[in-house]
Simulated assay, not measured.
Amino acid sequence: MHNPISRRAFAGFVLAASLSLPAAMPAAQAADYSKDNPLKVVLVLHGTLGDKSFFDSAAAGLEKAKAELPVDVKIIEAGYDRGRWQPALADATDGGYDVVIAGTFDMTGFVAELAPQYPDTKFIIFDDAPDYSTGCCGNVMGLLYQTSSAGYLAGYAAAKLSKSGTLGTIIGMDFPTVTDFKVGFDEGAKAAKPDIKLLNAVSGTFSDPAKGKEMALAQLGQGADIIFPIAGGTGIGALQAVRDAHKLAVGVDSDQASIFEATDPAQAAVIFTSVEKKVGESLFIALKDTIDGKAEYGKRLLLGLKDGAVGISRNKQYETIVPAELRAEVDALQEKIASGEITPATVMK
């Protein structure tokens, strides 16, 4: 089901997919980390766990690191009050950790401000990267994900599955790391059915399930029979609307059907696949390479389908809902994207 990033592939990202700049910090020598002398890591979330999406994926990667690596992990939930985000990150950075992790464009500016003040601390920002040309961030690793390459596959399958000929997407905000999902999804859908109708909406928030449900109901009312919410917690409400209408949905960031399986099987049953941004796996590998002295900071890494950093969920819902012939088509498309024969559009540069 999952296609974890290999350590060899991740090391290759540093050479092939990264933007190297003079300010980059050379790969550190491997330290003698052990259970008695662990790498001290803190993840600062500008939100809370339980989003069944982005933040949960990041936390899962750290839990995996805690189980398999000599690391000491702390997760700080700063909540959704923007006024708390910078102080939470500053407090964490001042806490004596070896690696400070934060995510998305909302936190990048804060990381860029703090990193020069703590040159001996390493920072990882996932789903965004600072402007390295300013010389601010030789101790910062930026992990970005070209999700359009996986969104293309989901869009193609959705268009083929749609009986109404209308699909809907709901994004939290119109920002490259969010919009890239939709760009690929829309392109893949049009490749499958050039006359497909696409309904697109922007919620303006990632933390309002009621608004997500309202927007999904509007799209369902306009004939959409498959909806792709790309909106964090807001998207949970959209998924609920799809569940109640007995239509289909595409999950985002993580394998959302598997996440819902135990607590809401009816919800899981309508999510025929998810476009996965393998945040947790990329963080795990980044920490492992940090311990091994192989991770270079001061780099911007853009990871995509060919790297195994994004993909679609091929779970029991996928196997049940998507006919074998269509699954074979999607597999063939994935191979063409990975080989470069097909290059989905992207807003990630």
Rank of each mutant, 00 (worst) to 15 (best):
K197T: 15
A249F: 09
K247L: 10
L239Y: 01
L43S: 14
L301H: 12
M107K: 00
F181G: 04
Y145A: 02
G61D: 01
A88W: 08
A345P: 04
A210H: 01
V250I: 15
G251M: 06
A65S: 13
F228W: 04
Y156L: 02
L283A: 10
I342P: 10
I170V: 09
G311H: 14
K163D: 03
S162R: 00
S57N: 15
L39Q: 08
A157P: 03
S149D: 13
A159Y: 09
A210P: 05
G151M: 02
A245G: 03
L239Q: 05
D81P: 10
T104N: 04
D94R: 14
V73Y: 13
A24M: 10
A30G: 01
D208R: 08
I125W: 04
L333E: 05
A67F: 09
G308Q: 14
I337G: 02
A115F: 03
G232T: 00
A224P: 05
T93K: 01
A78R: 01
S53T: 14
S313V: 08
G47S: 12
V99W: 04
P26N: 05
A27P: 14
K197V: 14
F272I: 04
T205H: 12
V322F: 05
T108H: 04
V330L: 01
A257D: 01
K163H: 11
K316D: 15
L89F: 12
F185G: 03
W85N: 03
N200F: 07
L144T: 15
L21W: 04
F206W: 13
I5R: 07
Q146I: 12
F228S: 00
Q256C: 02
Q29D: 14
L198Q: 13
A102F: 06
L15F: 13
A59M: 11
T177Y: 14
G188P: 11
E325V: 00
L199Q: 10
C137D: 10
G12R: 03
S164H: 03
K35F: 07
P344T: 12
K35W: 05
V242M: 03
S313K: 11
G172W: 03
T166F: 06
G135R: 03
G95M: 01
L287I: 08
S339P: 09
V279R: 07
V100N: 08
F228K: 00
D72A: 15
I285G: 07
V252T: 12
V242W: 06
E113P: 02
G172Q: 01
K197W: 12
K193W: 08
S6Q: 02
G223L: 08
S282Y: 09
A210M: 04
T93Q: 13
G223W: 09
F55K: 13
G212L: 07
K336S: 02
M173R: 13
K288F: 06
A191H: 14
K213A: 14
